[in-house]
Design a protein around this nucleic acid. Structure first.
Lengths: 113, 113
DNA sequence: GCCATCGTACGACCCTCGTCGAAATAGCGG
DNA sequence: CCGCTATTTCGACGAGGGTCGTACGATGGC
């Protein structure tokens, strides 16, 4: 093979130390972005951008992914033309202990109710 | 007609069950409101409206208190002309376990850093 | 009664942010 | 080389919300 799938397109991620609580909350206050996080948490792995169940246009979704990435919530990387997304759960847990998990749990609580 | 008494000004509070996660996050995404919550948490009791250390006008502060109250975060009651504020910690803990405490802890983490 | 104090109501301003569509870019498969 | 698909960029628009000043209301002290 030796066909390097390595993407020329790279994505910039902040260190979790650089993200502020303000940034994190601004990212998670949007219902669409919380839906993304929720679906990622349920998937327990990565999902490509196109596989999310949200009611917004593609360009809007791109915007939401950018916000989540800049807030340190998700990690993204390209696989061919598709972009994969994964929660940075462990890192966020280290940065703001219990916060992301409590938020995901709260969202789940409401969804079940 | 039997008029309701005018002397004790009463304040309406939602039940924590009525509060949505969306409402809670919208309330806590504002830095001024988080400062209020933070100072209340540190005080471990009630504080009158005028004793908070925030950089906004009185009318703006009133608005922030309303948002926090409607989100179920604080309980308010009048004592003479002053209005007291207290965190509804136990109730919020029951509604969204771990969330408020993780947020307060996160804010403290950042403040110390 | 009168006034100082504390909080509220209202209206206005402004600016951020979520939203979209259309056009552009990047890799994949033939 | 040519589409095809997935995602991005850009500009524009509109709603919402944080802010303030000012006018008003309620309370307690004198």
């Amino acid at each position: 093979m030796a066909r390097p799938r390595t993407s020329p397109r790279t994505v910039e991620h902040p260190s979790v130390e650089e993200v502020s609580l303000q940034q994190l909350l601004e990212a998670l206050v949007d219902p669409v972005r919380r839906a993304v996080v929720s679906q990622l948490a349920r998937a327990r792995g990565e999902m490509s951008c196109g596989t999310f169940d949200v009611q917004v246009s593609r360009s809007t979704l791109t915007h939401h992914f950018n916000v989540l990435r800049e807030a340190g919530v998700i990690r993204q990387y390209y696989v061919g033309t598709t972009k994969m997304n994964a929660l940075r759960v462990d890192e966020m847990e280290e940065r703001f202990p219990g916060l992301l998990s409590a938020l995901v749990a709260a969202g789940r609580l409401e969804a079940d109710a």
